[in-house]
Design a protein around this nucleic acid. Structure first.
Length: 516
RNA sequence: GCGGUGGUAACUCAGUUGGUAGAGUGUCAGCCUUCCAAGCUGAAUGUCGCGAGUUCGAAUCUCGUCCGCCGCUCCA
C-alpha cells in the first residue's frame, strides 16, 4: 500500500511534469533527476517559503549566495577531506559491506582489551602488592598485545594517509579479521569511496588545480562570516542563510529524489555567544518544527535525536517526515560549536572572532545550524498531497479523482481559467480576456479542451487550488464561478474580485503569520 | 562494488510451446457537451534497453553489455 504510494508518486511526477529522470533519452543517470515545468514551480515556492520565513521574518538573518567552487583548503578545515573518505570492503559470503578502517580499529580494540584483561587477572592474583605500572611495562603478554595494537594503529594511519587500499586489505588478511555475524574471512579488495566530487580548475595538471564540488553549502557561509558581519553591521546573535546546490558522490543514490548525488540545501547558520548555544538550539528546533507544521500534518513529523554525533557537533536532532518508505530525515538541526570558525581561523590565519561590546571581549562564536533538504521537502510535500479519492460523478455515481492537495501558497499553478464550452465563441473570448488580466497577478492556465469535468480533474492532478469557469451567466452579469480544489465547492463572484480573492487565498503571508 | 530482481508506446501492462507488436489510460485534430474523468469520429507515437549468437524466422532461446529498482554503507 505504502509501497504503491511511492510508485504512484514517481510515475505521477513524471506523467504530470514534476520530475523526470535525468538524461532519460540516454537511459538515465543513476541518482540524478530533472525538475519539470510544475516541479520547478513547486520547488521555487518551497524555497521562497523558506527564504521568507528565515530571512524576511528575522531582522538578524541575512542571505548570501556563495559559489559552488571553493578553495580546496576549506574542505581540509571542515574535516570533509578526512571524514568523507571511506575505504569500504565487502564480505563475499554475507554480502555485507563494511568500512575497512572500522574493521581494523575494532580489531585493535580487541587487542587492547586482551591486554587489559591480563592486567585485571594479575591484579586479582597479586592482591594488594600488585604494581600495575611495572606489570604493564614488563609482562610479556601485555607488552605484546599493546605493541601489536600500536603497530597496527600506526600502519592503519599510514595506509589511510597514503590511500593505500592494498595495505588495508593486507591488514585485514594478516589480522585474520572475520565478518562479525558469519565469521567469514572471504573479503573483496578494499575500495576507496570519496564522497566529494572533484574537478579541475584552469588547465593546471596534477593535484594543484584540483577542486571539490561543495558537499554542503554551510562552508560558504562560514568563510563569509567576517564579510557579512562587517557589511551588515550585525551583532551576535545573528544568522546567515543560503539556498544552493551541493554534491555528494553517494555509493548508492536511492529512493527517487530522497538521496541524490546533486541536491539542494536550505541552510541557516546562526552565530551565538558561547554558552548560549543550547538555548538557541532549542529555539531553532521549535521554530523549524513550526515552519514544517504550517504545511505538513503534525502526525507526519517527529524529532529524532542523533545517537552518535558528527565530529563538529555537541547536539544534533533531525526533523523526520513519514515518507512512504518510512520516517526519514528532512532537516537537521545541529549545534556545531565553534568547530568550523575555529578551524578556518587556524588554517587561514584570519581571526574569525566577534568583539562583544556587552562582555567587552573577543570570542569565536558558536554556531547553531538548521539545514533542510530542499528536494526532500519537495518529496514530502508530494507524498503528503497525492491522494486518490472517491467523489460523485455527473450521475451521482462513485468515481475516483487524483488530486494533489498542496498548500495553495506552494501550488505550481494558482488558477485555471476555463470557458464552460469551447464551441461558443463568446465564452472563449471572455475567458481569454479574463486570463490576460489574471496573468499579471499569478501563474494561470487557460484550457478549453474536453468537457469541463475533465479539465477540473486535470487541474486537480497538478494541484491547482482554484478554477475559474466562464459560463453564460458571465456574459449577462460579469460573474464567474470559482471552484476550490479540495472541497470542489463553487462560489459565484464578480470578475473584478477574482484576482483579489485568489491572491489572498494563495498568499504565502498566511503561512508566515501562522508561524510567527 | 556485491547479491536479488527487472527493462515492450507518454503512463500501467498483455504478448501463450520462437512466426517480424497489442490493450486500457493519456496525447493530438474534429464533432458533441449549459459545471466535475472514462459520448462520437479520426490520427500520431515503439529499431520490444543495446550488441552478438542459434534459427528459414527472435520481444520470446543463449552469451555479453548498459540501465533501473530493492538490500548492504553513508547522509540533506
Amino acid at each position: 500500500m505504502q509501497e504503491d504510494l511511492f510508485k504512484r508518486i514517481v510515475s505521477h511526477s513524471k506523467e504530470y511534469g514534476f520530475i523526470y529522470p535525468s538524461s532519460e533519452v540516454y537511459d538515465g543517470l543513476n541518482g540524478v533527476y530533472d525538475y519539470g515545468p510544475y516541479g520547478v514551480e513547486l520547488k521555487n515556492n518551497i524555497k521562497e517559503y523558506w527564504w521568507r520565513a528565515m530571512v524576511q521574518m528575522h531582522e538578524n538573518i541575512t542571505g548570501i549566495d556563495s559559489a559552488i567552487f571553493m578553495h580546496p583548503l576549506i574542505w581540509k578545515a571542515s574535516g570533509h577531506v578526512d571524514a568523507f573518505n571511506d575505504p569500504l570492503v565487502d564480505n563475499k559470503d554475507s554480502k555485507k559491506r563494511f568500512r575497512a578502517d572500522v574493521l581494523i580499529e575494532t580489531e585493535i580494540d580487541k587487542m587492547l582489551a586482551k591486554a587489559e584483561k591480563e592486567v585485571e587477572k594479575a591484579a586479582k592474583r597479586f592482591g594488594e602488592s600488585f604494581n600495575e605500572e611495572l606489570f604493564r611495562d614488563t609482562n610479556p603478554r601485555v607488552v605484546e598485545y599493546n605493541q601489536k595494537a600500536a603497530d597496527v594503529e600506526k600502519r592503519l594511519a599510514n595506509a589511510l594517509k597514503n590511500n593505500d587500499m592494498a595495505d588495508l586489505k593486507a591488514l585485514i588478511d594478516e589480522l585474520e579479521i572475520a565478518e562479525p555475524d558469519t565469521g567469514s574471512r572471504n573479503w573483496t579488495e578494499v575500495r576507496q569511496f570519496n564522497l566529494m566530487f572533484s574537478t579541475q580548475m584552469s588547465n593546471i595538471g596534477g593535484d594543484e588545480g584540483k577542486l571539490y564540488l561543495r558537499p554542503e553549502t554551510a562552508q560558504g557561509i562560514f568563510v563569509n562570516f567576517l564579510n557579512v558581519q562587517k557589511t551588515t553591521r550585525q551583532k551576535i546573535p545573528f544568522g546567515i542563510a543560503q539556498i544552493g546546490k551541493a554534491f555528494r558522490n553517494e555509493i548508492v543514490a536511492r529512493q527517487f529524489i530522497f538521496r541524490m548525488r546533486e541536491f539542494e540545501q536550505m541552510e541557516m547558520q546562526f552565530f551565538v555567544r558561547p554558552g548560549t548555544e543550547m538555548e538557541w538550539y532549542n529555539t531553532w528546533k521549535e521554530r523549524r518544527m513550526a515552519w514544517h507544521r504550517a504545511i505538513t500534518p503534525a502526525e507526519k513529523l517527529r524529532f529524532k535525536d542523533h545517537d552518535n554525533l558528527a565530529h563538529y557537533a555537541n547536539a544534533a536532532v533531525d526533523i523526520q517526515f513519514g515518507f512512504p518508505f518510512g520516517f526519514k530525515e528532512l532537516e537537521g538541526i545541529h549545534s556545531r560549536t565553534d568547530f568550523d570558525l575555529a578551524s578556518h581561523s587556524q588554517l587561514s590565519g584570519k581571526k574569525m572572532q566577534f568583539f562583544d561590546p556587552e562582555l567587552n571581549e573577543h570570542y569565536i562564536p558558536y554556531v547553531v545550524e538548521t539545514s533542510v533538504g530542499c528536494d526532500r521537502m519537495f518529496l514530502s510535500v508530494l507524498s503528503n498531497a497525492l491522494i486518490d479519492e472517491t467523489v460523485p460523478d455527473a450521475q451521482g455515481e462513485d468515481s475516483t479523482r487524483t488530486v494533489l492537495k498542496i498548500a495553495p501558497a506552494l501550488a505550481p499553478v494558482k488558477c485555471a481559467v476555463l470557458p464552460l464550452l469551447r464551441n461558443k465563441e463568446e465564452l472563449v473570448d471572455k475567458a481569454r480576456s479574463i486570463f490576460d488580466k489574471l496573468k499579471f497577478h499569478f501563474l494561470c492556465q487557460y484550457d478549453d479542451k474536453d468537457a469541463i469535468g475533465r479539465r477540473y480533474r486535470r487541474q486537480d492532478a497538478i494541484g491547482t487550488p482554484y478554477c475559474i469557469t466562464i459560463d453564460f451567466e458571465t456574459l449577462e452579469n460579469d460573474t464567474v464561478t470559482i471552484r476550490e480544489r479540495d472541497s470542489m465547492q463553487q462560489e459565484r463572484v464578480h470578475i473584478g474580485e477574482v484576482a483579489r480573492i485568489v491572491s489572498e487565498r494563495t498568499d504565502m503571508r498566511k503561512l508566515l503569520e501562522e508561524i510567527a
